[in-house]
């Protein structure tokens, strides 16, 4: 009889079950460090542990080419990637590039619309985290009047 081994197995099974809890039960805290990052690369590292991403044509970002008012830039984001865990908006030239990060919970469609502020003309990157990696698309949005109230 090997009680130690049996105990180890049971504990292991319990831990695995814990790890498999639906993410819906564990609303993650606001990712303060990623939101504070002064560069897009830092935000990616803080969010995903790596700045390594792959471009994907399965992500759609609908936005105006020219935003006359940088205080209100409407974005419509959608992806056909599977097993999406989160979608993040990164405005590369904003002082704090990470603008929003949205958890896609089981049963929720990987799409949303919102409005953001842009200080100046910039690439806007959408980063989609799936179970296989982080995929991105980017689009330049020209801003006529900056929207950070400076």
């Amino acid at each position: 009889m090997n009680i130690g081994r049996r105990f180890f197995l049971r504990t292991g099974i319990a831990l695995t079950a814990l790890a498999a809890l639906p993410r819906a039960l564990l609303a993650a805290a606001w990712p303060e460090k990623a939101f504070s990052a002064p560069a897009a690369s830092g935000a990616l590292i803080d969010l995903f542990g790596s700045e390594q991403t792959a471009p994907s044509d399965k992500i759609s970002l609908k936005a105006p080419e020219i935003a006359e008012n940088g205080a209100v830039v409407p974005l419509k984001i959608k992806t056909t990637l599977e097993n999406v865990e989160s979608i993040s908006i990164i405005v590369e030239k904003n002082p704090r590039p990470l603008t929003a990060t949205v958890e896609i919970l089981p049963g929720t469609l990987p799409e949303f619309s919102c409005r953001i502020k842009m200080r100046e003309t910039s690439d806007v990157m959408i980063a989609v985290k799936t179970d296989t990696g982080v995929y991105t698309t980017a689009k330049e949005i020209k801003v006529t009047i900056g929207g950070c109230g400076g």
């Binding site: 405005v91 919970l105 502020k117």
Partner: peptide, 12 residues
């Protein structure tokens, strides 16, 4: 829970 959206100051 169906949606958790985290915002920075740069949401309008």
């Amino acid at each position: 829970l169906v949606m958790v959206a985290n915002f920075s100051t740069a949401v309008s």
